[in-house]
């Protein structure tokens, strides 16, 4: 009987070295004893023992930091929480996240996403600022539940890799940043709702979304970004008409 710990698994990895390669192409690696490894561990093994030039992002190794997102067998996944034993037998295909420019190997450009996050005022704007002496802002469990799932986002961008409309329009604010927007707009301590809403009334705002919904399916944290985008389509649509009634 073959020892499962000695099982060798083949990884097909999309490689791209800027300035050297004109276009990305696949490289194949055999990793021995990979049966109980996560995809991230397999990549680390390759980097340590087979090819030190292999580039990929990671930090926490426990699905918290959001840096190890990549396409595994064509699906956006966190490499640290995807285990080789759970994948169908045969070679495993690993590619950088879809819809993003590739910097090098499995590393993608995140600048656009960071700018989008910055654009939606990602902090609480209190109705009236309190001093420390005045005590904390209080919130009931029900008020917390109204936005809590959206605060679980780890900025892994898997949802962007799953979003065909982001693929068509890289300026589309997209699911992850909208989850963050809703995390603050749904917070009872916040008073910046209108200000944030006013950043997303355009085609690059919520109106690129066609409610495909796969973003929520691939999210590793059950954030449900599709809910964040689509409830704000409703908000933006009503604002389109109600803005004339609004007193500033």
């Amino acid at each position: 009987m073959p020892d499962p710990a000695k099982k060798t698994i083949e990884l097909r990895i999309l490689r791209y070295q800027p300035g050297v390669d004109a276009a990305p192409s696949f490289g194949t690696f055999e990793v021995a004893g990979a049966e109980n490894m996560s995809v991230l561990e397999a990549l680390q093994t390759i980097k340590d023992t087979l090819d030190g030039s292999l580039s990929f992002r990671w930090s926490c190794r426990m699905a918290v930091c959001g840096s190890c997102g990549m396409m595994i067998n064509g699906e956006p996944k966190l490499a640290c929480s995807t285990f080789l034993r759970d994948l169908p037998p045969g070679p495993v295909t690993v590619e950088p996240l879809n819809n993003f420019p590739i910097e090098r190997d499995l590393v993608i450009s995140v600048g656009g996403f960071v700018k989008k996050i910055e654009s939606i005022y990602p902090y609480i704007m209190p109705k009236e600022p309190k001093t420390v002496e005045q005590g904390p802002y209080r919130q009931t469990p029900a008020q917390l539940a109204a936005y809590e799932s959206f605060s679980d986002c780890i900025n892994c961008m898997l949802c962007y890799a799953a979003c065909p409309q982001f693929g068509e329009n890289p300026d589309f604010i997209g699911p992850g940043a909208m989850a963050l927007l809703q995390r603050y707009n749904g917070d009872s301590r916040d008073a910046g709702r209108q200000k944030r809403l006013d950043t997303i009334h355009g085609e690059n705002g919520v109106w690129s979304c066609t409610a495909v919904g796969i973003c929520s399916e691939v999210c590793p944290k059950s954030v449900d970004p599709a809910n964040a985008v689509n409830q704000n389509k409703t908000n933006s649509a009503f604002d389109f008409f109600l803005r004339f009634l609004r007193k500033e």
Binding site: K116, I120, G202, N204, G205
Partner: peptide
Amino acid sequence: MTGPARDNRSISPIFWLLFGA
């Protein structure tokens, strides 16, 4: 300073509300 997401108000809401109704 505006982020990349800031662009003109879309008229999509008109069609979207009719679609929704």
